[in-house]
Every structure is written in C-alpha cells, then in structure tokens.
Simulated scan of single mutants.
Amino acid sequence: MRYINVKDLTPGMIIANNLYDNNELVLLKANTELTQFYIDRIIGLDYDGIYIFDQGDVEKAKSIVSDETRIKVIGKLKKLDIDACMFLANSIVNEIQNSDSLIIERVTLSSYDNYTYVHSVNVDILSVIIGIGLGLRNEELNKLSQAALLHDIGKCDVPVEIINKPARLTPEEYEEVKKHPQYGLERLRAKEKGGDDIAAVIKNAVYSHHENWDGSGYPRGLIGEKIHLFARIIHVADVYDALTTKRAYKNALNPADTLEYLMANTGIMFDKDIVSTFLQYVAPYPIGCTVLLSDGQQGVISENNRINLPRPKVKLSNGTIIDLTEKLDVTIISILM
C-alpha cells in the first residue's frame, strides 16, 4: 500500500480505501481500478492524495474510527445538531478504546469542501487519544470528545466567504475568524437556554482552544495551567491536523515536520506534557508514504515500530524490507510522499 499525490495517479492503479464526495456518498470503493474519468473526479474534489495498492498488497489503510461513524458525525455537524454530535462523540470514545492500536499511522483523506467537518472529527480523535495517554477517566474522555468535536462550531457564525476564502485572510478577516471561540460559546449557552445542560468544562474548552501556553493566544491571553486541560489538549490536536491538511492557500506539512513544529513551540504555544504524550501516538512516517533514506535509496513505509515510531520498516523498490530499528546506520532524511 502506498500514499500517492493525485498528480501522480495513472489509470490502472487500484485504490485502497473508500473515497467520499462532498455529500458523504461513496465516490469510489476500495479495490476500484482507476480510469482517467475517476482520476479527474478525484482531482475535482481537491483530494491531495490517496492510498493505492502495490502489487501483492491485500490490506487497506486502517482507521481507528470507522468510516461509517465519521460520515454520521460529519452529517450532524453540517446540520449543527449539537445533541447528536455530543452523543456521537461518546461513540468515538468507545471505538477508540476498542481499537487494536491507538497509533495514528495514516494520512487523512479529505476533500477541500469538507475540510471544516473532517477537521473537527480528526481533532476529536486526536484529542481522545491524548486524553487516554494522559490517563483520563472515561467520563472525562467523553466530555473531552464532545468539546473537541464542537471546538469550531462557532465558525458557522463567521461569514462563509471568509471561511472558504481560497487565499490568505486580510488582517480584518483574521480578526473576524478569531471571534469563533466566542461565537461557539454563545451557541452552547443558547442551547442551555433551551433547557439542555452542557458541562462547564466543554464550554471552557470550546472558548479557550486558541489560548497559548505563554499567554500570547486568544481570546483572553491565559497563561499556562490557567488554560483548562481540555483546551490545551485540543490546541495541540487542532494545530497538528490543520498543518497536515492541504488548503487552497497552503500546502500540507508532512507529519514529521509538523511534529517538529509542535516540539519547537512547546512552552510557547503548547503544554510540554501534552506534546510529549502526543508524540507517543503519532507516527512521524505514516504507512504508505515514500521516504528518502540516508544511503540514497527510496522506499515506502511498510510498518511502524510502535515502541520506537521514528524507526519504521521501509520497503525498497526491489521488495527488500529494511527494519530501521536494526539497521542503525541508515536514517530517514525526508518524506517524499
């Protein structure tokens, strides 16, 4: 299995995962052979890349949360159905807890138009994994999941032409976007006025997920542990997913470089303990991505060492597999994707 940029797709390749259109309908099922028509459809939806099978592959790229649950959640987010989102957030916790592995080792596949919704689901999953790593109890994980899933709900009150602008925002537009935590808090408070009770920690996290550890964030400029733990967790997950996702005005950073960014901003933007926990669960080199080795060879990540994520197994073009936990004189120089 290999992750490949859409510009490098050719007819005859076999896709390894279901692909969805912007209405959450299956565009192409796994094991479909690509034609030029299909490739044009994929490009039209602004997918950055997809997984394909290499000769001899039999398994698709696994996901910690099922496609079915993701699709349900995205549909409820689009409808701003807060009750359903909070219920499904608990289902996400259950699926993660029952997963064979908590290691994030695949690239998220998403189309441009669905970015906001897919992003919210990704941030939820990443946040729950961090919460598990920190030893949070089940009740806390459910509330963290709900807060993470709803963290950007305030963006529905930001003008759509700003949210979907295919270029960098002006300073004035950015100031409007910065109001989305307040808008999100107001939506949750309005929900309470209708008779629903929403935990204070959920409202706090939605309101505070852009606060920075050193006090340079917004909307209140909180410092350190004055920022609620849930907000600090969501902040790390939010930035990671945003940086690793292609947008109209920027290319995606690869996972390894994004993890370096998180580490470089520990103590500035992020809580050190949360970043350290996150590093235990996110593979810097996702399965299927193409890498350049220090000996000049190129290969595809075939398996991650879950005890030592920076040292995976790499499959070379001739079929040879190098285990970097054993071949210590070879390192990964860069991700070529």
Rank of each mutant, 00 (worst) to 15 (best):
L80D: 09
K79F: 10
V58Y: 04
D46L: 15
A61F: 12
L80F: 11
E59G: 03
C85H: 06
K60Y: 09
K76W: 00
D54L: 13
E68R: 04
E59K: 08
A89E: 00
S63A: 14
I50F: 02
K62H: 09
S66Y: 08
D48P: 06
E59W: 05
T69I: 12
L80K: 11
Y47D: 05
L45F: 15
S63Q: 14
S91T: 10
E68P: 08
D48M: 10
D81T: 02
I64N: 10
C85T: 06
D48S: 13
Q55G: 02
G44E: 13
K60L: 07
M86T: 03
L88R: 09
V65P: 00
S66K: 08
D67P: 08
D46G: 11
A84I: 00
R70N: 15
K78V: 06
L45I: 01
D48W: 03
L77R: 04
V58F: 12
D67W: 14
L80E: 12
K60C: 15
M86G: 01
K79H: 10
K76E: 04
V65R: 03
I92W: 08
D83A: 13
D48Y: 09
M86R: 01
G44N: 08
G75F: 01
I43N: 09
I74C: 00
L80N: 13
T69M: 12
F53R: 02
L45P: 03
L45T: 00
D54R: 02
I50Q: 01
C85R: 01
I64E: 05
L88G: 07
A89D: 00
D67G: 07
R70Q: 12
G44A: 05
Y47M: 04
K62M: 14
E59V: 14
G75E: 14
V65I: 08
D46T: 04
D67H: 11
S66A: 11
K62C: 06
I52E: 09
I64Q: 07
D83F: 15
K60V: 07
S66G: 08
S91W: 13
K62G: 14
I74M: 08
D83S: 12
S63E: 14
A89R: 01
V93R: 05
D81P: 02
G56I: 04
R70G: 13
I82Y: 05
N90Q: 15
S91L: 12
D81F: 06
Q55N: 10
D67K: 09
F53W: 07
F87N: 13
E59R: 05
D83N: 13
I52L: 08
D83Q: 06
S63G: 07
D46M: 13
G49P: 07
G44T: 02
K78L: 06
